[in-house]
Amino acid sequence: RKLPLGEGLEKHPLENRWALWFFKNDRNRVWQDNLHLVTKFETVEDFWAIHSHIKLASKLSSGCDYALFKDGIEPMWEDSRNKHGGRWLVSLAKQQRQSNLDRLWLETLLCLIGEAFEEYSEEVCGAVLNVRTKGDKIAIWTSEAENQPAVTFIGRVYKERLGLSPKVIIGYQAHADTATKSNSFTKNKFVV
């Protein structure tokens, strides 16, 4: 499908409009004040224009996040579309920032904007990248942790798209469990 915008200038519309968010850690401010909406886009061409103008994931300072969410969903547990959901979490080793992070994050973004999870794409809320000294993390957030068919389908497709070895296990954690945990360990609800 194409939007006619004149000869040679067609843009390809996406199924959803997406919002890109940036989080920069400043301990003197409350969490929400460190979260900034960068821009929104709804075509393939605009996605690439934005992607080529912002810093690569591997160039961000530790403590920064990128988040890409469907327009109307805020990248936080409290949003009504996230509250009962959870995330497929990919935790990277420190050395993967240089070797793998940019490729894995781009692949995650392409899964989202291309609606790679077919009819279960409806369940996808967004994706979050955390750049951290102790190891970076990438996650796809979905809206209903109890929706096992959707969650497991998304997990299987996502793992395949990332090109992870079958030996690597990734886990899905409910936000409700992450929010109430008493230590850094959150139990996996599903694994693929």
Partner: peptide, 18 residues
């Protein structure tokens, strides 16, 4: 049934088109 799905190959081609 009218969801707009783009595969990886198509999205990557769009990156390189003028």
């Amino acid at each position: 049934g009218t969801r707009i799905i783009y595969d990886r190959k198509f999205l990557m081609e769009c990156r390189n088109s003028p």
